[in-house]
């Protein structure tokens, strides 16, 4: 079990975390790993906080990630990264999109969006990589490629072969978007 990697993907309902988890799960299955992906459907999709689990290795039992078990936390939004920090292993990696989205209590003026979250996560010993995925996606050609930018950044932290990912993109993306997505992946992969 020790070789099982656990990736927790979090964001806001509607941001496309499901697609990222399927891309990741598919790539790891093609690599010959046992894979489990756990998704959230239904009520919490409506603009709520969402989490998706991806686990791969020689043999994966639980589809869930418990507190302190995630090797990598891939967050599409800052507040969600902070919310799910307890799931990260001590000294684990966080790849976080710097985008901020106000939740309803903040919108309604009943709560504050906390400041300095990136530093606060680093203070807890997490290796934080914060990237402006939206700008990089736009640089690649489409704001919709935020997903692929983040997957690129994740791929590097997982220490996986870049070629697997580029092949997965070729397989899953419509032909006319392949080059744009490859570019988005590279921008994410090389983000420091």
């Amino acid at each position: 079990m020790s070789n099982v990697k656990s990736i927790l993907i979090v964001g806001v309902g509607g941001q496309g975390t499901l697609l990222a988890s399927r891309l990741l799960g598919g790539a790891m299955m093609d690599e010959g790993y046992d894979v489990k992906v756990s998704e959230v459907h239904g009520m919490s999709q409506r603009g709520g906080s969402v989490e998706t689990y991806v686990r791969y290795g020689d043999k994966v039992y639980s589809p869930l990630i418990s507190l302190g078990e995630a090797d990598v936390l891939l967050a599409f939004e800052q507040l969600e990264a902070a919310r799910y920090l307890p799931y990260l292993k001590k000294g684990g990696h966080i790849v976080v999109n710097t985008q901020k989205m106000d939740p309803m209590p903040v919108v309604a003026g009943n709560a504050q969006y906390p400041q300095g979250l990136l530093d606060k996560m680093s203070e807890q010993g997490a290796n934080v990589l914060a990237i402006d995925a939206l700008s990089l996606a736009e640089q690649a050609g489409s704001a919709k490629a935020v997903n692929v930018v983040l997957i690129g950044a994740l791929a590097k932290r997982l220490g996986t072969d870049k070629e697997i990912w580029l092949r997965t993109i070729e397989k899953t993306v419509p032909p006319k978007f392949i080059e744009m997505n490859k570019k988005a992946f590279e921008l994410g992969y090389n983000a420091e």
Binding site: V12, G13, M43, S44, Q45, R46, G47, G48, S49, S66, L67, G68, E69, L79, E80, A82, R83, L85, P86, Y87, L88, K89, K90, P103, M104, P105, V106, A111, Q112, Y113, P114, G116, L117, K120, M121, E123, Q124, G125, A126
Partner: peptide, 20 residues
Amino acid sequence: ALPESSKVEAEIPARPPVMC
């Protein structure tokens, strides 16, 4: 024994589902 875990020193506002 449970795995070690940590949390940020801040109030994290809830993000409940909302009407679209």
